[in-house]
């Protein structure tokens, strides 16, 4: 009714917008590079990492081994490529668990807002939230022994309340919209409304959050493998490579440098992509949030 409301501090500078779309591209390039590395590793790696080559152990980067070799003489580039597989698989599955369980729970809680069911779902979420994924992994490992599956379950469980909370809070605000009321007037039930009207309108937000949880999953997987709670040898994993490199760090820093960089760049790529996607989906947020 009035002219658009304006705050004195508003309208972000074009500098941000330009940088943001550039960050989306950079993020995509980084992410796709590592996804490609993981995929290529299924058919080809420079060296077989199951063969040990003690004669060539702990060599720095060279024309033969671009990123050098480790303490068993294995090619670090090959191990990083296969490690990308582990990282990405664990993170993707963990995000999948979180979404497949968390989103329906959030939708359900929002549809029955204020009810006992809502209360129970949200309290349970709070409870799960009190267990950092590392602690879940510790518990699972002490009961069943370490493995990549444990890492997936531990990170996945931690993702459930993340998605459930986000879904519930965005669904709650959508439930206030008149078009939901119109759908109720048209006799549609809560399940149908959630499916037809709520879910499509939170998909973008879920994609953004999924990207962020994906990157957190990569970090968590690296941490778990580093302390031996994740993927076990002979499966290559970035966190394990770092753990192995620690003893040699004073005279073979390349062993620590490259796997760490791989983690850093993948996570950075995913985060940039998440930020970029958020801006793309919602221009109102075009101001560089977390």
């Amino acid at each position: 009714m009035s002219d658009q409301s304006l705050s004195p501090v508003q309208a972000s500078s074009t500098l941000w917008i330009a940088l943001r779309s550039r960050s989306l591209i950079l993020g995509l390039v980084l992410t796709l590079t590592f996804v490609a590395a993981a995929l290529i590793s299924f058919v080809w790696v420079p060296y077989d990492i199951t063969t040990l080559d003690i004669a060539n152990k702990i060599k720095g980067p060279s024309a033969l081994h671009w990123l050098g070799t480790d303490h068993y003489g294995r090619d670090i580039l090959s191990m990083i490529m296969q490690g990308a597989r582990t990282s990405i698989a664990v993170a993707v599955l963990a995000v999948g668990i979180g979404m497949l369980i968390g989103v329906p729970l959030g939708l359900w809680a929002a549809a029955r807002r204020g009810s006992l069911l809502d209360e129970v779902i949200m309290r349970t979420n709070d409870l799960v939230f009190a267990f950092p994924s590392l602690l879940i992994a510790v518990m699972i490992t002490s009961a069943f022994g370490p493995s990549a599956t444990n890492a997936i379950i531990a990170i996945g469980i931690f993702n459930i309340p993340v998605f459930a909370r986000l879904t519930r809070s965005s669904a709650l605000s959508l439930w206030q919209r008149d078009y939901i009321l119109a759908a109720r007037v048209a006799g549609k039930g809560a399940a149908r409304i959630s499916w037809e009207h709520i879910l499509p309108n939170i998909t973008n937000m879920m994609i953004v959050q999924g990207t962020i949880q994906f990157s957190l999953g990569i970090l968590a997987e690296a941490g778990l493998s580093y302390v031996g709670l994740g993927a076990q040898p002979p499966t290559a994993s970035w966190g394990r490579m770092l753990a192995d490199s620690q003893t040699f760090i004073s005279f073979a820093p390349h062993m620590a440098l490259f796997p760490g960089l791989a983690i850093l760049l993948t996570v950075l790529g995913l985060n940039l992509m998440g930020d970029g996607l958020r801006d793309l989906f919602d221009p109102k947020l075009r101001r560089g949030r977390t």
């Binding site: 990157s215 770092l242 490199s245 760490g260």
Partner: peptide, 9 residues
């Protein structure tokens, strides 16, 4: 984006 244990190393 930096893994804290790598940063520590």
């Amino acid at each position: 984006a930096i893994p804290n244990f790598w940063f520590a190393m």
